[in-house]
Design a protein around this nucleic acid. Structure first.
Lengths: 274, 274
DNA sequence: TCAAAAGTGTTAGTCGTACACCCATGA
DNA sequence: TCATGGGTGTACGACTAACACTTTTGA
């Protein structure tokens, strides 16, 4: 960690809201599996959700967008706040903040022998340590991205940033497991009210692909034919010319969403009973 | 405001999380109308949602419960977090915090002439002022209470605490209007997934009453007979012996929820299409 | 006895469910 | 040619939507 980095972080802390953070569950869909972006922390034991802090004059959603862009390079992404996690214990255990603190302590050791500027830095680190060790309430956002467009970038505190299959997650820091579960539950509830297919799939996709998406999100198997009929009846898709000629079987049609119709249909919910 | 009150508040501030609050949309149902509890602030211009701050070692939900109990006297109430409101501008305008500050400034004027203890108090007030003027991110909770069981109590900063009809709300502080709208939207979405009827209605109720509740929440008219059939088919009600013999018409049956069956049915959503 | 509100029933059409059959493709 | 997976169709039962008649009650 460079000295300038430390200074920069101090400046940031002054400009951050205290005690609040955002964490992102970034969903992608690939190879018939629902995946999320996770960071492997430098201690090599735990993984964590991408997250960050909120500048004092920043919208919560903008903070989330900023984090999203830093990890994926993407902008203009579907993003939705889903829950606040604020148990007092959540930040007391072994978590990302403590990792941060470790990193910062190392910086002290390495650099505090040098100059006046570094004495200043020691103060900063103490400040930072204090700040990070406090309780944090985090706002959970979920994002829907198109898998192929993402170029995952790790941050300073992590070794790597990769997609992890939702069905086999690595050990996670703090309450991030719980956050992911809640995000998934929310995704299920939002399926009929938000353009989830539109945002998770590429522009063109096949009906079986859409079905797998629904099956993974819902965690159930669906009948091929009934699924097709139902989706078609929603009247939100346009069928293109045949393609997807890679497999050892009949080539499925390609579809794309009619965004206007999709949005309109979502307003009342796709299967709203009332 | 008593001096001890000021001291007490200072103690509280030290123990509060900074920059975070909770606000409550407390729903009740009476006279065929959906109502919420609002506070009329002492400036006599604006009304506000009941709200409060979070102690440093307190669960968010416990903070909400605490506020709820202070305003209604009730415990064991259905409470659900629904959204975070964190726009940087939300606390810059004329809002409850500014009212608080006004109150506190008056305290200064009255009491700062007296003793050393009051000098100390001045400091507190400055602290408090500083604290309250900062940006606040607030977690919105909605609560469902049985109207007749509530005994609304105003807090120190308000003249009164009363039920307001959802269809004719008074002018509201800050973004509280938006918070209420979001709460209502959420209530609609939760109708098939949470025991909303159970918590808003008295133990015994009639089918027309239940229907009015649904109509008010959804904002639409429903067919009497179809509504009845549908609800009955959910298999979550037990019919009692006739009653509600007050009106100039045929006495409707009384029903009550079979809580076990209701909860079980809600797990998959009452009309879940998937 | 009358109006208002509640209980109950019917019917047609739509939708969900559970199926079976045929078609295209690469190995 | 065959296994795999995809496209399409049908029939039954359940549910929805629209609607009418009867019953109870206080004024």
């Amino acid at each position: 960690m460079s000295n300038s980095r430390n200074i920069e972080f101090k400046k940031d802390i002054e400009n951050y809201l205290p005690a609040i953070s955002v964490d992102l569950v970034i969903f992608g869909f690939h190879d018939n599996d629902l995946k999320i972006l996770l960071l492997e922390l430098k201690d090599k034991e735990n993984w964590a959700l991408p997250g960050g802090f909120i500048f004092k004059d920043e919208f919560l959603e903008d903070a989330a967008k900023r984090v999203l862009q830093e990890r994926t390079g993407l902008t203009g992404i579907f993003l939705e706040q889903f829950h606040v996690f604020g148990d007092p214990e959540r930040t007391r255990m072994n978590n990302r903040e403590k990792q941060l603190v470790k990193q910062l302590e190392n910086v002290e050791n390495v650099e505090s022998v040098e100059s006046v500027e570094n004495v200043e830095d020691d103060k900063l680190s103490a400040e930072i340590r204090q700040w990070l060790l406090g309780r944090f309430v985090t706002v959970g956002f979920y994002a829907l991205v198109e898998y192929t467009e993402v170029n995952p970038k790790s941050d300073f505190y992590s070794i790597q940033c990769t997609w992890c299959d939702i069905s086999s997650l690595p050990p996670l820091v703090s309450d991030h497991q719980k956050i992911i579960e809640k995000a998934l539950q929310t995704l299920r509830l939002h399926l009929n009210f938000h353009p989830i297919g539109l945002n998770l799939l590429p522009k063109e996709f096949t009906m079986p692909e859409l079905q797998r998406l629904y099956e993974t999100i819902l965690g159930i198997k669906l009948d091929r034919r009934n699924f097709q009929r139902r989706i078609i009846n929603y009247n939100i898709l346009t069928r293109l010319s045949k393609k997807r000629t890679g497999g050892a079987f009949k080539a499925p049609y390609l579809y794309q969403f009619d965004e206007a119709l999709y949005q309109k249909a979502l307003q009342n919910g796709l299967d709203s009973p009332w």
